[in-house]
Design a protein around this nucleic acid. Structure first.
Lengths: 100, 100
DNA sequence: TCGATATTTCGACAACCATCGAATTGATGT
DNA sequence: ACATCAATTCGATGGTTGTCGAAATATCGA
């Protein structure tokens, strides 16, 4: 039985994507910010805090989303993002199991 | 007080290096292999298991070492590597604290 | 000393990736 | 319909990095 039964295992592809996603300092900052908030209006809020162009931010959010680390929800003109804690936990568990 | 008192905190530079080191599939395999063994004669043993050129392996080992994830010890013609579990643990703790 | 083996360094190449300006799409309010 | 604002897509650029062959360095045994 896995350490947390109802948590999905990460595929090798996901493992790689998550690791790469975490390896970029700007994406790390974005995740950190998302972790502190209930996550409203990302692009606007992010850009206040992180100093990044709209194009670059959009690119990073897509990376984070394909890695499964965030989920997005459209709200009219805006897009709201949510940190996916369970994917993060699955990644930590995998690292612990494989290496620690 | 930090979660594990006698564990060194990671600098931002180290955090970035460790994350990048973990993000390459081949380096991940190397670490996994190191984790299972008491670590003798790396380059020889690694190359049996991983199919990699000497030059590339040397390059990756250096990356892992500057990240602090492994320590090396010369033994005559050979070099022995040791997984640095405490750095790995520090990284996991940092991720947990920042994001989870 | 010499030849063999282990590892590193060098140099080059290709692939990947972060970055951003400009153009585009999509939604809102007037 | 139109102007405005949020966000994405496109295209280009510069920097990073994984890869390996070849040469260099280091150690050992004969």
């Amino acid at each position: 039985m896995a350490p947390h039964a109802n948590q999905p295992e990460l595929t090798d592809d996901q493992l790689s994507r998550v690791a790469k996603a975490l390896a970029d300092p700007r994406r790390y900052e974005i995740l950190k910010k998302l972790g502190t908030q209930p996550c409203a209006t990302p692009c606007s809020h992010m850009r206040d805090a992180i100093d990044i162009s709209p194009a670059t931010l959009s690119h990073h959010m897509k990376e984070l989303e394909t890695a499964g680390l965030v989920r997005s929800e459209k709200d009219g003109k805006f897009v709201n993002y949510f940190l996916q804690h369970h994917i993060l936990r699955a990644y930590l568990n995998r690292l612990k199991a494989d290496l620690a």
